[in-house]
Design a protein around this nucleic acid. Structure first.
Length: 522
DNA sequence: TCTGGGGTCCTAGGACCC
DNA sequence: TCTGGGGTCCTAGGACCC
Protein backbone atom coordinates (compact mmCIF):
# COMPACT_ATOMS: atom_id res chain seq x y z
CA UNK A 1 0.00 0.00 0.00
CA UNK A 2 1.35 3.30 -0.95
CA UNK A 3 0.23 6.83 -0.69
CA UNK A 4 1.00 7.36 -4.36
CA UNK A 5 -0.69 5.49 -7.20
CA UNK A 6 2.66 4.31 -8.52
CA UNK A 7 1.67 0.78 -9.49
CA UNK A 8 0.10 0.42 -12.89
CA UNK A 9 -1.66 -2.50 -14.48
CA UNK A 10 -1.76 -2.68 -18.24
CA UNK A 11 -4.22 -4.80 -20.16
CA UNK A 12 -4.42 -4.92 -23.94
CA UNK A 13 -7.97 -4.66 -25.28
CA UNK A 14 -9.32 -7.91 -26.77
CA UNK A 15 -5.72 -8.70 -27.50
CA UNK A 16 -5.72 -11.67 -29.89
CA UNK A 17 -8.68 -10.38 -31.84
CA UNK A 18 -7.18 -6.89 -31.99
CA UNK A 19 -3.93 -8.25 -33.39
CA UNK A 20 -5.93 -10.04 -36.07
CA UNK A 21 -7.80 -6.92 -36.99
CA UNK A 22 -4.58 -4.94 -37.16
CA UNK A 23 -2.98 -7.58 -39.35
CA UNK A 24 -6.00 -8.10 -41.59
CA UNK A 25 -7.51 -4.83 -42.82
CA UNK A 26 -10.64 -6.51 -44.12
CA UNK A 27 -11.55 -7.49 -40.55
CA UNK A 28 -11.40 -4.05 -39.00
CA UNK A 29 -14.68 -3.02 -37.52
CA UNK A 30 -16.05 -6.53 -37.97
CA UNK A 31 -16.68 -9.29 -35.43
CA UNK A 32 -13.61 -11.48 -35.02
CA UNK A 33 -13.42 -14.57 -32.86
CA UNK A 34 -10.13 -16.28 -32.08
CA UNK A 35 -10.05 -19.71 -30.56
CA UNK A 36 -10.13 -23.44 -31.15
CA UNK A 37 -11.88 -24.14 -34.41
CA UNK A 38 -12.42 -27.83 -33.94
CA UNK A 39 -15.65 -29.32 -32.73
CA UNK A 40 -14.52 -29.00 -29.16
CA UNK A 41 -12.93 -25.61 -29.30
CA UNK A 42 -13.69 -22.63 -27.12
CA UNK A 43 -13.40 -18.91 -27.69
CA UNK A 44 -10.10 -17.47 -26.67
CA UNK A 45 -10.85 -13.84 -27.48
CA UNK A 46 -13.77 -12.10 -29.13
CA UNK A 47 -13.45 -8.62 -30.60
CA UNK A 48 -15.74 -5.97 -29.17
CA UNK A 49 -17.90 -6.23 -32.28
CA UNK A 50 -18.42 -9.93 -31.55
CA UNK A 51 -19.02 -9.32 -27.86
CA UNK A 52 -22.09 -7.34 -28.76
CA UNK A 53 -23.58 -10.63 -29.92
CA UNK A 54 -22.96 -12.17 -26.53
CA UNK A 55 -19.77 -13.97 -27.47
CA UNK A 56 -17.12 -14.09 -24.77
CA UNK A 57 -13.96 -15.91 -23.75
CA UNK A 58 -14.27 -19.57 -22.79
CA UNK A 59 -17.60 -19.92 -24.58
CA UNK A 60 -17.81 -23.11 -26.65
CA UNK A 61 -17.07 -22.26 -30.24
CA UNK A 62 -20.22 -23.98 -31.42
CA UNK A 63 -22.25 -21.58 -29.33
CA UNK A 64 -20.28 -18.62 -30.58
CA UNK A 65 -21.07 -19.66 -34.15
CA UNK A 66 -24.73 -19.66 -33.32
CA UNK A 67 -24.57 -16.28 -31.63
CA UNK A 68 -22.52 -14.61 -34.30
CA UNK A 69 -22.48 -16.65 -37.49
CA UNK A 70 -21.02 -13.87 -39.61
CA UNK A 71 -17.92 -13.36 -37.53
CA UNK A 72 -14.49 -14.31 -38.80
CA UNK A 73 -13.44 -17.41 -36.90
CA UNK A 74 -9.69 -17.66 -36.66
CA UNK A 75 -7.18 -20.03 -35.12
CA UNK A 76 -4.67 -18.24 -32.92
CA UNK A 77 -1.32 -17.08 -34.32
CA UNK A 78 0.75 -17.17 -31.20
CA UNK A 79 3.97 -16.21 -32.87
CA UNK A 80 2.38 -12.93 -33.88
CA UNK A 81 0.91 -12.35 -30.43
CA UNK A 82 4.26 -13.04 -28.82
CA UNK A 83 5.96 -10.56 -31.06
CA UNK A 84 3.46 -7.81 -30.32
CA UNK A 85 3.70 -8.66 -26.65
CA UNK A 86 7.45 -8.17 -26.71
CA UNK A 87 7.04 -4.71 -28.13
CA UNK A 88 4.54 -3.81 -25.43
CA UNK A 89 6.62 -5.27 -22.61
CA UNK A 90 9.60 -3.38 -23.96
CA UNK A 91 7.69 -0.12 -23.68
CA UNK A 92 6.75 -0.99 -20.11
CA UNK A 93 10.37 -1.62 -19.23
CA UNK A 94 11.19 1.90 -20.31
CA UNK A 95 9.06 3.01 -17.39
CA UNK A 96 10.64 0.68 -14.89
CA UNK A 97 12.75 -2.42 -14.74
CA UNK A 98 10.17 -3.82 -12.36
CA UNK A 99 7.67 -5.29 -14.83
CA UNK A 100 5.64 -8.34 -13.93
CA UNK A 101 4.00 -9.92 -16.97
CA UNK A 102 0.89 -11.92 -16.14
CA UNK A 103 0.31 -13.14 -19.67
CA UNK A 104 1.08 -12.00 -23.19
CA UNK A 105 -1.24 -9.03 -22.85
CA UNK A 106 -1.12 -8.04 -19.22
CA UNK A 107 1.46 -6.75 -16.77
CA UNK A 108 2.09 -4.81 -13.59
CA UNK A 109 4.69 -2.07 -13.50
CA UNK A 110 6.18 -0.50 -10.37
CA UNK A 111 6.93 3.09 -11.30
CA UNK A 112 8.78 3.75 -8.08
CA UNK A 113 11.50 1.36 -9.12
CA UNK A 114 12.08 3.18 -12.39
CA UNK A 115 13.58 6.44 -13.59
CA UNK A 116 10.58 8.44 -12.34
CA UNK A 117 10.80 6.89 -8.90
CA UNK A 118 12.83 9.64 -7.27
CA UNK A 119 10.62 12.36 -8.71
CA UNK A 120 7.52 10.55 -7.56
CA UNK A 121 8.95 10.09 -4.10
CA UNK A 122 9.45 13.80 -3.66
CA UNK A 123 6.34 15.03 -5.37
CA UNK A 124 3.33 16.16 -3.41
CA UNK A 125 0.09 14.34 -3.92
CA UNK A 126 -1.31 16.30 -6.79
CA UNK A 127 1.97 16.54 -8.66
CA UNK A 128 2.64 12.83 -8.24
CA UNK A 129 -0.74 11.87 -9.56
CA UNK A 130 -0.46 14.17 -12.53
CA UNK A 131 2.89 12.64 -13.36
CA UNK A 132 1.53 9.10 -13.15
CA UNK A 133 -1.39 10.03 -15.37
CA UNK A 134 0.92 11.64 -17.90
CA UNK A 135 3.21 8.63 -17.96
CA UNK A 136 0.28 6.29 -18.41
CA UNK A 137 -1.20 8.32 -21.25
CA UNK A 138 2.17 8.50 -22.96
CA UNK A 139 2.46 4.77 -22.59
CA UNK A 140 -0.92 4.16 -24.17
CA UNK A 141 -0.04 6.49 -27.01
CA UNK A 142 3.32 4.76 -27.53
CA UNK A 143 1.64 1.38 -27.65
CA UNK A 144 -0.83 2.60 -30.19
CA UNK A 145 1.89 4.17 -32.28
CA UNK A 146 4.10 1.11 -32.24
CA UNK A 147 1.44 -1.55 -32.62
CA UNK A 148 -1.77 0.13 -33.69
CA UNK A 149 -3.47 -1.50 -30.70
CA UNK A 150 -5.24 0.02 -27.75
CA UNK A 151 -4.52 -0.76 -24.15
CA UNK A 152 -6.26 0.01 -20.91
CA UNK A 153 -4.31 1.12 -17.89
CA UNK A 154 -5.10 1.26 -14.21
CA UNK A 155 -2.99 3.14 -11.68
CA UNK A 156 -3.25 2.77 -7.93
CA UNK A 157 -1.33 2.22 -4.75
CA UNK A 158 -1.50 -1.57 -4.93
CA UNK A 159 -1.67 -4.37 -7.45
CA UNK A 160 -5.20 -5.16 -6.39
CA UNK A 161 -6.47 -1.66 -7.06
CA UNK A 162 -4.43 -1.15 -10.20
CA UNK A 163 -6.02 -4.24 -11.66
CA UNK A 164 -9.49 -3.13 -10.64
CA UNK A 165 -8.75 0.25 -12.19
CA UNK A 166 -7.67 -1.16 -15.54
CA UNK A 167 -10.82 -3.23 -15.60
CA UNK A 168 -12.84 -0.04 -15.15
CA UNK A 169 -10.78 1.66 -17.83
CA UNK A 170 -11.67 -0.85 -20.54
CA UNK A 171 -11.68 -0.43 -23.38
CA UNK A 172 -9.01 2.03 -24.40
CA UNK A 173 -9.03 3.99 -21.18
CA UNK A 174 -7.08 5.09 -18.15
CA UNK A 175 -8.34 5.06 -14.58
CA UNK A 176 -6.49 6.14 -11.50
CA UNK A 177 -7.77 5.16 -8.09
CA UNK A 178 -6.56 7.50 -5.42
CA UNK A 179 -4.98 5.95 -2.39
CA UNK A 180 -7.50 6.25 0.39
CA UNK A 181 -10.40 5.60 -1.91
CA UNK A 182 -9.98 1.82 -1.95
CA UNK A 183 -12.83 0.84 0.29
CA UNK A 184 -15.24 3.29 -1.27
CA UNK A 185 -14.48 1.90 -4.71
CA UNK A 186 -14.55 -1.76 -3.73
CA UNK A 187 -17.47 -1.74 -1.34
CA UNK A 188 -20.36 -1.82 -3.80
CA UNK A 189 -18.71 -4.29 -6.13
CA UNK A 190 -19.84 -7.93 -6.34
CA UNK A 191 -17.46 -10.35 -4.65
CA UNK A 192 -16.48 -11.74 -8.04
CA UNK A 193 -14.67 -8.49 -8.78
CA UNK A 194 -11.89 -9.60 -6.45
CA UNK A 195 -9.19 -11.65 -8.12
CA UNK A 196 -9.17 -15.13 -6.66
CA UNK A 197 -12.91 -15.30 -6.19
CA UNK A 198 -14.33 -17.55 -8.87
CA UNK A 199 -17.61 -19.38 -9.26
CA UNK A 200 -17.01 -21.84 -6.42
CA UNK A 201 -16.01 -19.25 -3.87
CA UNK A 202 -18.79 -16.98 -4.99
CA UNK A 203 -21.32 -19.71 -4.25
CA UNK A 204 -19.89 -20.34 -0.79
CA UNK A 205 -20.08 -16.65 -0.02
CA UNK A 206 -23.53 -16.23 -1.47
CA UNK A 207 -24.88 -19.03 0.67
CA UNK A 208 -23.50 -17.16 3.65
CA UNK A 209 -25.35 -14.06 2.51
CA UNK A 210 -22.22 -12.24 1.37
CA UNK A 211 -22.71 -10.62 -2.01
CA UNK A 212 -20.67 -7.45 -2.13
CA UNK A 213 -17.14 -6.63 -1.14
CA UNK A 214 -18.59 -4.45 1.63
CA UNK A 215 -20.35 -7.56 2.96
CA UNK A 216 -16.99 -9.30 3.11
CA UNK A 217 -15.38 -6.44 4.96
CA UNK A 218 -18.22 -6.40 7.44
CA UNK A 219 -18.17 -10.16 7.92
CA UNK A 220 -14.65 -9.97 9.25
CA UNK A 221 -11.64 -12.19 8.98
CA UNK A 222 -12.81 -14.89 11.36
CA UNK A 223 -15.96 -15.65 9.40
CA UNK A 224 -14.13 -15.65 6.09
CA UNK A 225 -11.50 -18.02 7.44
CA UNK A 226 -14.31 -20.22 8.62
CA UNK A 227 -15.88 -20.23 5.17
CA UNK A 228 -12.83 -20.30 2.95
CA UNK A 229 -10.00 -21.74 4.95
CA UNK A 230 -7.06 -20.00 6.51
CA UNK A 231 -5.10 -18.83 3.53
CA UNK A 232 -7.88 -17.83 1.24
CA UNK A 233 -9.98 -16.40 4.06
CA UNK A 234 -7.29 -14.09 5.29
CA UNK A 235 -6.44 -13.01 1.75
CA UNK A 236 -10.01 -12.26 0.82
CA UNK A 237 -10.56 -10.27 3.98
CA UNK A 238 -7.47 -8.19 3.38
CA UNK A 239 -8.59 -7.45 -0.13
CA UNK A 240 -12.08 -6.58 0.99
CA UNK A 241 -10.75 -3.77 3.11
CA UNK A 242 -8.46 -2.61 0.34
CA UNK A 243 -5.25 -3.94 1.85
CA UNK A 244 -2.68 -5.41 -0.49
CA UNK A 245 1.05 -5.43 0.16
CA UNK A 246 2.12 -7.72 -2.62
CA UNK A 247 5.17 -6.35 -4.37
CA UNK A 248 5.57 -6.23 -8.11
CA UNK A 249 8.10 -8.93 -8.89
CA UNK A 250 9.94 -9.18 -12.16
CA UNK A 251 9.66 -12.18 -14.40
CA UNK A 252 9.88 -15.41 -12.52
CA UNK A 253 11.04 -18.71 -13.89
CA UNK A 254 8.28 -21.08 -14.82
CA UNK A 255 7.59 -23.81 -12.28
CA UNK A 256 6.19 -26.32 -14.70
CA UNK A 257 5.92 -27.06 -18.39
CA UNK A 258 3.00 -28.96 -19.83
CA UNK A 259 1.24 -29.72 -23.06
CA UNK A 260 -2.17 -31.20 -23.60
CA UNK A 261 -4.56 -32.01 -26.36
CA UNK A 262 -8.27 -32.51 -26.61
CA UNK A 263 -9.20 -34.96 -29.34
CA UNK A 264 -11.94 -34.49 -31.84
CA UNK A 265 -13.17 -37.95 -30.97
CA UNK A 266 -12.57 -39.72 -27.67
CA UNK A 267 -9.76 -42.23 -27.79
CA UNK A 268 -10.96 -45.70 -27.04
CA UNK A 269 -8.02 -48.04 -27.13
CA UNK A 270 -4.91 -48.20 -25.04
CA UNK A 271 -2.43 -48.40 -27.89
CA UNK A 272 -3.74 -45.21 -29.38
CA UNK A 273 -3.58 -43.52 -26.00
CA UNK A 274 0.02 -44.57 -25.56
CA UNK A 275 0.94 -43.30 -29.00
CA UNK A 276 -0.59 -39.93 -28.22
CA UNK A 277 1.31 -39.87 -24.95
CA UNK A 278 4.52 -40.32 -26.94
CA UNK A 279 3.65 -37.36 -29.12
CA UNK A 280 2.79 -35.17 -26.15
CA UNK A 281 5.91 -36.17 -24.26
CA UNK A 282 8.02 -35.24 -27.27
CA UNK A 283 6.36 -31.82 -27.49
CA UNK A 284 6.76 -31.32 -23.77
CA UNK A 285 10.46 -32.16 -23.92
CA UNK A 286 10.95 -29.77 -26.84
CA UNK A 287 9.47 -26.96 -24.80
CA UNK A 288 11.43 -27.94 -21.73
CA UNK A 289 14.70 -27.89 -23.64
CA UNK A 290 13.88 -24.70 -25.44
CA UNK A 291 13.53 -23.14 -22.01
CA UNK A 292 16.86 -24.64 -20.95
CA UNK A 293 15.28 -26.50 -18.07
CA UNK A 294 14.91 -30.02 -16.85
CA UNK A 295 12.37 -31.46 -14.48
CA UNK A 296 12.01 -34.09 -11.81
CA UNK A 297 8.29 -34.84 -11.69
CA UNK A 298 6.41 -36.15 -14.69
CA UNK A 299 2.65 -35.58 -14.67
CA UNK A 300 0.10 -37.31 -16.83
CA UNK A 301 -3.33 -35.75 -17.18
CA UNK A 302 -6.36 -37.62 -18.41
CA UNK A 303 -9.79 -36.20 -19.04
CA UNK A 304 -12.35 -38.87 -19.63
CA UNK A 305 -15.41 -38.95 -21.83
CA UNK A 306 -17.51 -37.61 -18.97
CA UNK A 307 -15.13 -34.70 -18.38
CA UNK A 308 -13.88 -36.15 -15.12
CA UNK A 309 -10.19 -35.35 -14.87
CA UNK A 310 -7.40 -37.10 -13.09
CA UNK A 311 -3.66 -36.70 -12.82
CA UNK A 312 -0.98 -39.24 -12.10
CA UNK A 313 2.56 -38.25 -11.34
CA UNK A 314 5.90 -39.79 -10.66
CA UNK A 315 8.94 -38.10 -9.22
CA UNK A 316 12.30 -39.21 -10.56
CA UNK A 317 15.50 -39.32 -8.60
CA UNK A 318 16.90 -36.36 -10.42
CA UNK A 319 15.86 -33.77 -12.97
CA UNK A 320 15.98 -34.78 -16.59
CA UNK A 321 15.23 -33.45 -20.04
CA UNK A 322 15.70 -36.82 -21.66
CA UNK A 323 12.87 -37.61 -24.00
CA UNK A 324 13.18 -41.35 -23.51
CA UNK A 325 12.94 -41.05 -19.74
CA UNK A 326 10.02 -38.66 -19.78
CA UNK A 327 8.19 -40.65 -22.43
CA UNK A 328 8.64 -43.92 -20.58
CA UNK A 329 7.46 -42.41 -17.33
CA UNK A 330 4.38 -40.89 -18.93
CA UNK A 331 3.63 -44.16 -20.66
CA UNK A 332 3.92 -46.06 -17.41
CA UNK A 333 1.48 -43.68 -15.76
CA UNK A 334 -0.88 -43.89 -18.73
CA UNK A 335 -0.91 -47.66 -18.69
CA UNK A 336 -2.22 -47.54 -15.12
CA UNK A 337 -5.33 -45.46 -15.68
CA UNK A 338 -8.74 -46.79 -16.44
CA UNK A 339 -9.79 -45.59 -19.88
CA UNK A 340 -13.09 -47.35 -20.27
CA UNK A 341 -15.61 -45.04 -21.82
CA UNK A 342 -12.95 -43.14 -23.73
CA UNK A 343 -10.41 -40.41 -23.26
CA UNK A 344 -11.16 -36.89 -24.37
CA UNK A 345 -7.91 -35.19 -23.37
CA UNK A 346 -4.39 -36.21 -22.61
CA UNK A 347 -1.65 -34.07 -21.14
CA UNK A 348 1.99 -34.52 -20.24
CA UNK A 349 3.79 -32.13 -17.94
CA UNK A 350 7.00 -31.77 -16.04
CA UNK A 351 7.42 -29.93 -12.77
CA UNK A 352 10.02 -29.52 -10.04
CA UNK A 353 12.09 -27.78 -12.66
CA UNK A 354 15.79 -27.21 -12.37
CA UNK A 355 18.03 -25.14 -14.55
CA UNK A 356 19.40 -27.20 -17.32
CA UNK A 357 21.80 -29.51 -15.43
CA UNK A 358 21.98 -32.28 -17.94
CA UNK A 359 21.32 -34.81 -15.19
CA UNK A 360 23.19 -38.01 -15.50
CA UNK A 361 25.04 -37.67 -18.78
CA UNK A 362 26.48 -41.09 -18.35
CA UNK A 363 23.18 -42.86 -17.96
CA UNK A 364 21.73 -40.89 -20.81
CA UNK A 365 24.52 -41.83 -23.18
CA UNK A 366 24.10 -45.43 -22.19
CA UNK A 367 20.40 -45.37 -22.85
CA UNK A 368 20.84 -43.72 -26.20
CA UNK A 369 23.34 -46.35 -27.17
CA UNK A 370 21.03 -49.11 -26.15
CA UNK A 371 18.15 -47.50 -27.94
CA UNK A 372 20.16 -47.09 -31.12
CA UNK A 373 20.94 -50.74 -31.13
CA UNK A 374 17.34 -51.77 -31.00
CA UNK A 375 15.03 -49.43 -32.77
CA UNK A 376 14.86 -45.67 -32.60
CA UNK A 377 12.92 -44.29 -29.67
CA UNK A 378 9.57 -42.72 -30.38
CA UNK A 379 10.21 -39.15 -31.41
CA UNK A 380 6.70 -38.00 -31.92
CA UNK A 381 7.15 -38.12 -35.65
CA UNK A 382 5.17 -40.84 -37.28
CA UNK A 383 7.48 -43.13 -39.07
CA UNK A 384 6.90 -46.83 -39.15
CA UNK A 385 5.48 -48.89 -41.94
CA UNK A 386 1.91 -47.74 -42.11
CA UNK A 387 2.56 -44.13 -42.97
CA UNK A 388 -0.72 -42.46 -43.64
CA UNK A 389 -0.63 -41.22 -47.20
CA UNK A 390 -2.90 -38.51 -45.96
CA UNK A 391 -0.24 -37.08 -43.67
CA UNK A 392 1.36 -35.26 -46.60
CA UNK A 393 -1.68 -33.11 -47.27
CA UNK A 394 -1.20 -29.51 -46.24
CA UNK A 395 -3.23 -28.26 -43.38
CA UNK A 396 -4.48 -24.72 -43.76
CA UNK A 397 -5.85 -23.01 -40.69
CA UNK A 398 -8.18 -20.02 -40.94
CA UNK A 399 -6.18 -16.94 -40.11
CA UNK A 400 -2.84 -18.50 -40.98
CA UNK A 401 -0.25 -16.39 -42.76
CA UNK A 402 0.69 -17.50 -46.24
CA UNK A 403 2.77 -16.27 -49.12
CA UNK A 404 1.97 -16.78 -52.77
CA UNK A 405 4.70 -16.61 -55.39
CA UNK A 406 2.65 -14.30 -57.57
CA UNK A 407 0.19 -12.58 -55.27
CA UNK A 408 2.43 -12.09 -52.27
CA UNK A 409 1.44 -12.16 -48.58
CA UNK A 410 -2.02 -13.06 -47.45
CA UNK A 411 -3.95 -15.17 -44.99
CA UNK A 412 -6.10 -18.25 -45.13
CA UNK A 413 -9.74 -17.39 -45.02
CA UNK A 414 -10.99 -20.92 -45.22
CA UNK A 415 -10.43 -24.29 -46.72
CA UNK A 416 -12.27 -27.45 -47.54
CA UNK A 417 -12.96 -29.92 -50.30
CA UNK A 418 -9.47 -29.62 -51.67
CA UNK A 419 -9.45 -25.85 -51.97
CA UNK A 420 -8.07 -23.06 -49.87
CA UNK A 421 -9.27 -19.48 -49.98
CA UNK A 422 -6.73 -16.75 -49.36
CA UNK A 423 -7.18 -13.04 -48.87
CA UNK A 424 -4.23 -11.05 -50.07
CA UNK A 425 -3.65 -8.12 -47.80
CA UNK A 426 -1.10 -6.94 -45.25
CA UNK A 427 -1.27 -4.87 -42.09
CA UNK A 428 -0.45 -1.78 -44.11
CA UNK A 429 -2.45 -2.43 -47.23
CA UNK A 430 -6.10 -1.73 -47.78
CA UNK A 431 -8.59 -4.57 -47.63
CA UNK A 432 -7.49 -7.18 -50.09
CA UNK A 433 -8.94 -9.52 -52.64
CA UNK A 434 -9.80 -13.16 -52.22
CA UNK A 435 -8.55 -15.97 -54.43
CA UNK A 436 -8.99 -19.70 -54.25
CA UNK A 437 -6.35 -22.36 -54.86
CA UNK A 438 -5.95 -26.07 -54.67
CA UNK A 439 -4.81 -27.02 -51.17
CA UNK A 440 -1.63 -28.52 -52.55
CA UNK A 441 -0.79 -25.64 -54.87
CA UNK A 442 3.00 -25.55 -54.65
CA UNK A 443 3.31 -21.78 -55.04
CA UNK A 444 1.29 -21.22 -51.89
CA UNK A 445 3.33 -21.53 -48.73
CA UNK A 446 2.94 -20.96 -45.01
CA UNK A 447 4.61 -17.73 -43.91
CA UNK A 448 5.78 -15.93 -40.81
CA UNK A 449 3.58 -13.18 -39.42
CA UNK A 450 4.28 -9.69 -40.70
CA UNK A 451 4.97 -6.83 -38.32
CA UNK A 452 1.95 -4.65 -37.67
CA UNK A 453 3.85 -1.52 -38.54
CA UNK A 454 5.60 -1.22 -41.82
CA UNK A 455 9.36 -1.32 -41.54
CA UNK A 456 9.13 -2.00 -37.85
CA UNK A 457 10.73 -5.42 -38.05
CA UNK A 458 9.96 -7.82 -35.31
CA UNK A 459 12.41 -8.06 -32.48
CA UNK A 460 13.86 -11.51 -32.62
CA UNK A 461 12.57 -14.26 -34.85
CA UNK A 462 11.13 -17.10 -32.91
CA UNK A 463 12.48 -19.79 -35.09
CA UNK A 464 11.19 -21.57 -38.08
CA UNK A 465 12.69 -21.26 -41.46
CA UNK A 466 9.80 -20.36 -43.72
CA UNK A 467 11.15 -18.25 -46.48
CA UNK A 468 10.61 -14.66 -45.76
CA UNK A 469 13.36 -14.05 -48.21
CA UNK A 470 15.27 -10.88 -47.99
CA UNK A 471 17.03 -9.14 -45.22
CA UNK A 472 15.95 -10.39 -41.87
CA UNK A 473 17.06 -13.92 -42.44
CA UNK A 474 18.49 -14.87 -39.13
CA UNK A 475 16.41 -17.83 -38.26
CA UNK A 476 16.92 -18.95 -34.71
CA UNK A 477 16.44 -22.46 -33.44
CA UNK A 478 13.78 -24.87 -34.48
CA UNK A 479 10.24 -23.84 -33.88
CA UNK A 480 10.33 -24.51 -30.19
CA UNK A 481 6.93 -23.96 -28.71
CA UNK A 482 5.35 -25.00 -31.82
CA UNK A 483 2.32 -24.52 -33.67
CA UNK A 484 2.95 -28.17 -34.28
CA UNK A 485 -0.45 -29.61 -33.84
CA UNK A 486 -0.88 -33.30 -33.54
CA UNK A 487 -2.24 -34.71 -36.71
CA UNK A 488 -5.50 -35.05 -34.98
CA UNK A 489 -7.06 -31.80 -35.99
CA UNK A 490 -9.77 -33.74 -37.59
CA UNK A 491 -10.63 -34.00 -41.18
CA UNK A 492 -11.65 -31.00 -43.10
CA UNK A 493 -11.93 -27.71 -41.54
CA UNK A 494 -14.17 -24.82 -41.01
CA UNK A 495 -13.55 -21.67 -42.85
CA UNK A 496 -13.61 -18.19 -41.57
CA UNK A 497 -16.86 -16.78 -42.70
CA UNK A 498 -16.54 -13.61 -44.56
CA UNK A 499 -17.42 -10.94 -42.13
CA UNK A 500 -19.89 -8.46 -43.30
CA UNK A 501 -20.37 -10.21 -46.59
CA UNK A 502 -23.02 -12.64 -47.53
CA UNK A 503 -22.15 -15.76 -45.63
CA UNK A 504 -22.04 -18.93 -47.58
CA UNK A 505 -21.04 -17.33 -50.81
CA UNK A 506 -17.82 -17.80 -52.60
CA UNK A 507 -16.74 -21.14 -51.28
CA UNK A 508 -14.81 -19.42 -48.58
CA UNK A 509 -17.19 -20.45 -45.89
CA UNK A 510 -15.56 -23.80 -46.22
CA UNK A 511 -16.98 -27.23 -46.11
CA UNK A 512 -17.68 -28.89 -42.85
CA UNK A 513 -16.03 -32.18 -42.00
CA UNK A 514 -18.88 -34.12 -43.48
CA UNK A 515 -18.45 -32.28 -46.71
CA UNK A 516 -21.91 -30.88 -46.72
CA UNK A 517 -22.78 -27.67 -48.36
CA UNK A 518 -21.87 -24.97 -45.90
CA UNK A 519 -24.86 -22.97 -46.99
CA UNK A 520 -27.03 -25.76 -45.68
CA UNK A 521 -26.36 -25.01 -42.06
CA UNK A 522 -28.04 -22.20 -40.28
C1' DT B 1 -21.26 -30.52 -31.69
C1' DC B 2 -20.82 -28.55 -24.25
C1' DT B 3 -17.02 -27.34 -21.79
C1' DG B 4 -9.13 -25.22 -24.77
C1' DG B 5 -4.48 -24.83 -23.27
C1' DG B 6 -1.07 -23.13 -20.31
C1' DG B 7 -0.17 -21.95 -16.01
C1' DT B 8 -0.27 -20.86 -10.40
C1' DC B 9 -1.38 -21.75 -5.65
C1' DC B 10 -3.59 -24.32 -1.88
C1' DT B 11 -5.15 -28.41 0.79
C1' DA B 12 -4.92 -32.89 2.61
C1' DG B 13 -3.40 -37.49 3.58
C1' DG B 14 0.22 -40.88 3.99
C1' DA B 15 5.10 -42.09 4.28
C1' DC B 16 9.07 -41.42 6.62
C1' DC B 17 12.31 -39.39 9.80
C1' DC B 18 13.71 -37.26 14.13
C1' DT C 1 2.71 -51.14 24.26
C1' DC C 2 0.72 -46.14 24.13
C1' DT C 3 -0.43 -41.80 21.81
C1' DG C 4 3.19 -37.62 20.33
C1' DG C 5 4.43 -33.89 17.72
C1' DG C 6 6.79 -31.76 13.86
C1' DG C 7 8.90 -31.41 9.34
C1' DT C 8 9.44 -32.72 4.64
C1' DC C 9 8.37 -35.14 0.55
C1' DC C 10 5.15 -37.19 -2.53
C1' DT C 11 0.71 -37.67 -4.66
C1' DA C 12 -4.00 -36.17 -6.01
C1' DG C 13 -7.39 -32.97 -6.60
C1' DG C 14 -9.49 -28.49 -6.97
C1' DA C 15 -10.02 -23.45 -7.59
C1' DC C 16 -8.66 -19.85 -10.25
C1' DC C 17 -6.54 -16.86 -13.95
C1' DC C 18 -5.76 -15.36 -18.79
Amino acid sequence: MRSLPSIIHLDMDAFFAAVEQAAKPSLRGKPVIVGGLGGRGVVSTASYEARRFGVHSAMPMAQARRFCPNAAFLAGRFEAYRQVSEIVMGLLRELSPLVQPLSLDEAFVDLEAGPYGPVLAEADHGTGERLVLALAEDLRADIERRTGLTASVGAAGSKLMAKIASEQAKPDGLVLIEPGEERAVLGPMPVRALPGIGPATEQVLRRAGLNTVADLAEAGEAELVQLLGRSHGVGVHQMSIGLDDRPVVADQDAKSVSVEDTFEVDLADRERVLREVDVLAARCVRRLRAAGRSGRTVVLKVRRFDFSTLTRSETLRGPTDDEAVITETARRLASQVDITGGVRLLGVGVSQLADYTQEDLFAQAEREEAAAEQHPAPTGEEHGPEVEEEAVVRHWMPGQDVHHAEFGPGWVQGSGVGRVTVRFETPWSGPGRVRTFAVDDPVLEPARPLPLRRGAGWGEPAGGEPEDGGAGDRAAGGNGAGDSRPGDGGTGEDGAAEPGERPGREGSAGADPAGRDPAAEG
